[in-house]
Design a protein around this nucleic acid. Structure first.
Lengths: 243, 243
DNA sequence: GAGTGGTCTAGACCACCAA
DNA sequence: TGGTGGTCTAGACCACTCA
């Protein structure tokens, strides 16, 4: 199979990546599912196994798919134990790992303020849900999250439904709404605690907190969540790596 | 060429990666140099081009090598315009990019305190250099850095030498000492400004600052720098991405 | 046009897993 | 034992750069 030397050349494996992504968007394979084997996909797309392989390699590098030798290739899911903490970068300074406890404060439906509307590609005033919650480590509240999500996408969400669910928030989004978070961008600042945060985190007003603003994306780089986390970082740090 | 099914199986391309890394450690190819072509390396290591290719692909994904179609494969360097800002994740909230101005405060030789010694794989009390500097954005000081590096590796470093150098710190390390930083881990907290930081950053004592602790590594994952940056994040943020 | 990296293929064989 | 992903090869051809 030859590639036309078109003005904007696009490798075959890149087109295969797009086709696979479209199947993910369409829900043909859902988080946790196995996708067809490389050979099956090669037949389906009429390319060689090596080309499918390269496409899957890149999707696996982006943590969208997960390869398991001898078993198959799977759609990444936040419900798996291995990746339920994938987007939580706060950890203890002594290195011991600990899963935080979540306490839901409130769920309300309101109109999107300018900033989160812009970042979520919504019109200002579009309907959103606002979730407030508190994460505790060692029974001590440490992160106060305010989460904005478009009501149009999370139709039917309500507080009892969230309280009934045991796992992580992103796992909840997957199982109830079929929305899988695959990527996020964060902007971090140091700020003084305001009244609400000070109260909830048992700190003085003006105490130094990490303010972590996040936009999270689902398949096709579509933004579907904005959140602001305020985090008290005594004995805990935000950990990251670069290369 | 067949692989012995040894107890701990190691793919050929992985061994090639190690060989290439060893050449980088030995200084056979230095930052900015072109390494031999894939075909030359295939002949040298007695493997196929595809195997060399996979090894280089992975090193390129780690930002250790840089591929340039039609030209060759190069050793990544902090002296290149494209990557001189690779490890600086503070940027303006309005998205405009700006290169900070650096003011060297002091360079001194002293004994490593417990923490940085441990993180740099040194004995406590080993000889290190301590560099203090101030980075300014828009003529306003915003980051106060304290940098610890082993004296044994950066032999002969002194203040005049640093003042004479125009580029970034990591570019300086490369050209004068042949040390290339390829990876770093950061731990971030929100803290109140102490006396020294408050003075240098023109803030009140207790003002909220980002405290960014970094360990940076050179080839072979060898730690060669510890630093603590204190950053005033008004109108600026620490930006990161995850997937 | 020569040399480099980039794509694609076809086929052989290995490592791992489950039934 | 059969199916999956993982490795390795050899070869053809394409895209890009530079002299």
């Amino acid at each position: 199979m030859t590639n036309a030397s078109s003005p904007s050349f696009r490798p075959l494996y890149d087109q295969i990546k797009i086709l696979i992504t479209q199947s993910l968007i369409a829900g043909e394979w859902r988080p946790g599912d196995a996708i067809p084997s490389e050979i099956d996909l090669a037949n389906r797309f009429k390319v060689s196994q090596g080309t499918v392989r390269k496409a899957i390699d890149e999707l696996a590098a982006e943590n969208i798919l997960i390869r398991r030798q001898g078993k198959g290739t799977f759609v990444a899911s936040h419900s798996q134990e291995r990746s339920s903490t994938r987007f939580l970068r706060i950890s203890r300074d002594d290195g011991l790992s600990e899963y935080p406890e979540s306490r839901l404060l409130s769920v309300s439906r309101t109109r999107a303020p300018e900033e989160s509307a812009r970042l979520l590609d919504l019109r200002t005033g579009a309907s959103i849900f606002v979730i407030k919650r508190l994460l505790s480590f060692e029974h001590s509240p440490r992160i106060f999250d305010e989460i904005h999500i478009p009501a149009a996408i999370f139709k039917g969400l309500d507080e009892p439904m969230m309280r009934a669910y045991a796992g992580s928030l992103y796992s909840f989004f997957e199982t109830h709404f079929g929305i899988a978070m695959i990527r996020a961008e964060e902007h971090i600042k140091a700020v003084g605690a305001g009244e609400e945060a000070a109260l909830l985190l048992n700190q003085e007003r003006g105490a130094s907190l990490l303010q972590i603003d996040r936009v999270a994306f689902t398949y096709g780089d579509r933004p579907v969540e904005w959140r602001r986390g305020l985090c008290f970082t005594d004995r805990y740090s935000y950990v990251t790596e670069m290369s």
